[in-house]
């Protein structure tokens, strides 16, 4: 992959973020207020974290659609374990319990995929249903307030920039350095590109895929903390982040076939998708435009990022048709 192609998703996402932001700032005073910008960055947190996790699954050529239900489950669990008026020690144990739910889900998904050899989409769809039902069993309606000190800590920041957002930027940069500059990062991409060849070359492909799905779930659990900070109560429905997380990863440069992706690209795409949701209501535009925009952008991104492969496929198909015509002509002659 050429350097220009590797940077294309990052450049495109940055351009779109700046262009949309500039348009919104020029047309609507409310956009550049610290209140709105702070909300934009805080709203980006759940999607950014879960999409970074999803990028891991996509890098090994899989999908994890259970992340949305896992995030909801983590919010519900947090409403039991991070209750108001608890000391920081108790809260720490409660937070570990939430992370534990993520870890357990990740191990469960990875076992289904690697040990039972189920397709990732089917395995995680099953987990999604189980977690959705369990969340509704635990909380059939929003109740159980979450500790306000914990929420304050999660939302803390300097000016309008939450510390957590700075943290996720650092995480994404470090993750990209790991992915493209280390042996284990190379192994992850290699497994995604070609599992069989990687295995033949002696790579621990099973362990790599296993870890990718565990990390994906762990990131969804961390994203769950930020969803909890938003709703501040044990809500059994918090929104569908499954498709959005895949959309963010793809827009950020991840290939659906595996082996390609960028954590920084994913973060930028998550910021852009959240920016769309933030800007549309400011202009009294219906949010269905956001869904349509996301769909169109995914298709455009797939075409744009994979243009050389698509062209090669077209040439091959066209060549095949040409050969067929020649043969038919010869037969008729």
């Amino acid at each position: 992959m050429s350097i220009s192609r590797a940077w294309l998703p990052l450049a495109l996402m940055t351009t779109l973020i700046v262009a949309l932001g500039a348009y919104a700032a020029m047309r609507q005073d409310a956009f550049l207020t610290t209140y709105n910008l702070g909300n934009l960055l805080l709203s980006t947190m759940p999607l950014a974290l879960v999409a970074i996790g999803q990028t891991n699954a996509l890098l090994v050529g899989g999908f994890d659609v259970s992340v949305a239900a896992l995030m909801t489950m983590c919010v519900v669990v947090a409403s039991f374990t991070l209750q108001p008026d608890k000391s920081w020690d108790v809260l720490l144990v409660g937070a570990l319990a939430v992370v534990g739910v993520g870890l357990a889900t990740g191990v469960f998904n990875a076992t289904l995929i690697r040990v039972l050899k189920l397709p990732s989409i089917i395995a995680t769809l099953g987990t999604l249903s189980i977690l959705e039902g369990a969340a509704l069993l635990l909380r059939d309606h929003p109740e159980g307030f979450i500790n306000p000190n914990a929420i304050e800590a999660l939302n803390a920041g300097v000016s309008f920039v939450p510390y957590a957002f700075i943290g996720v930027v650092v995480l994404a940069v470090l993750a990209d350095i790991w992915l493209y500059r280390t042996r284990t990062g190379l192994a992850l991409r290699a497994v995604g590109l070609d599992d069989s060849s990687s295995r033949r070359l002696g790579m621990a492909t099973g362990r790599t895929v296993f870890l990718a799905f565990v990390i994906c779930s762990l990131m969804a659990a961390v994203a769950g903390f930020y969803s909890a900070a938003q709703v501040q109560i044990g809500s059994p429905i918090i929104g569908n982040y499954a498709l959005e997380s895949i959309a963010a990863a793809v827009l950020g440069g991840a290939s659906l076939a595996g082996g390609k992706g960028s954590f920084v690209g994913t973060l930028l795409a998550a910021l852009f998708l959240t920016e769309i949701s933030n800007v549309l209501p400011l202009f009294q535009q219906p949010t269905e435009y956001a869904q349509m925009t996301i769909g169109v952008l995914i298709l455009l991104a797939l075409v744009l990022y994979q243009a050389p492969e698509l062209l090669a496929r077209l040439r091959t198909s066209w060549g095949g048709v040409g050969r067929l015509r020649t043969r038919q002509g010869e037969a008729a002659g």
Binding site: A30, N36, P46, N240, S277, N278
Partner: peptide, 24 residues
């Protein structure tokens, strides 16, 4: 007069509400 529907998405409902607040 402003109207928004979050189409059953709780996260969007919070965003819409905050958009109304930021527009004063």
């Amino acid at each position: 007069i402003i109207y928004t529907s979050a189409h059953s998405n709780p996260a969007q409902a919070l965003t819409d509400f905050r958009a109304a607040i930021s527009q004063h």
